[in-house]
Amino acid sequence: MSSFFYSIKQGIKNIFRNRLFSLASIGTITACLFLFGVFFCLVMNFQSIFQEVETTVGVTVFFDEGTAEDRIMAIKSDIETLDSVEEVLYTSPEQAWEDYKEKAFPDGDNEVLTNLDNDNPLADSASLAVYLNDAATQEDVVSYIEKIENVRTVNSSQSVADSMASIGRLISYVSLAIIVILMGVAIFLISNTVMIGVTVRKEEIAIMKYLGATDFFVRGPFLVEGLLIGAVGSLIPVCVLYFLYDKVVEFVTERFAILNSILVFTPSLEVFRLLLPVSLIIGLGIGFFGSYFTLIKHVRV
């Protein structure tokens, strides 16, 4: 147990002894994890925006002439059983006519149109609006609905759905690639910092070996040093991002007010509840592996 506390104490001392190198490593990890955090926030927000857009990418289903409302409601229930369906809304012929009138003459009543109220021109225009929870499944859903009896036409915008799915995939792959590269750079840098620490303390390590120190005793302080640098380097960017996040959201919302209907930002607490542990784990991981591999290679009792 005393070795354990000794390692922690020496690890902290190492950081202050080589404060310039330690600061450089912390700075690098901070920069890497700041970029990671920015991508993380972007991905989370893109996902929420996509989800919002996806729910507006609807499929409209029309029925054969004379299809009874009961039958339409049965089809509605059938469609609602599909996993990828978020919501199905029924529009009656009367509602369709009211919507049309409102759209065509938003300023007020039109005598001609009012006269047609008792002879609805859209009598056979009852429809179901099907909203999906994943735009990528639209093609399957459309093909399923088309096979249902009494269904006349299914209108959809496959290109929008395809684009959404492609953009989503592209952002995920690009983010993953950038994150992997940044992590590699950070591991390399922390490994260099620990190696410099090992070189600076070469004499001390040699003495420890002659005195009968175990591998754990010799390597412990360096591992602690790496872990602490990783932890500090991961907490700084999370704190900075936490304070920046709301300001950026506020700025974008004000500056691009026209896009407010689709720009649905994830609340900061929701983002940082996930980003904090993820960054900390990555920071500690970089610190641990960066120092561990260096120690395996350069410090052997």
Partner: peptide
């Protein structure tokens, strides 16, 4: 390490920290 704990070592250049 157990073996080395049973051997005291002294060098020409002292090797003190």
């Amino acid at each position: 390490p157990i073996l080395r704990r049973g051997i005291g070592v002294v060098f020409q250049d002292f090797r003190l920290l």
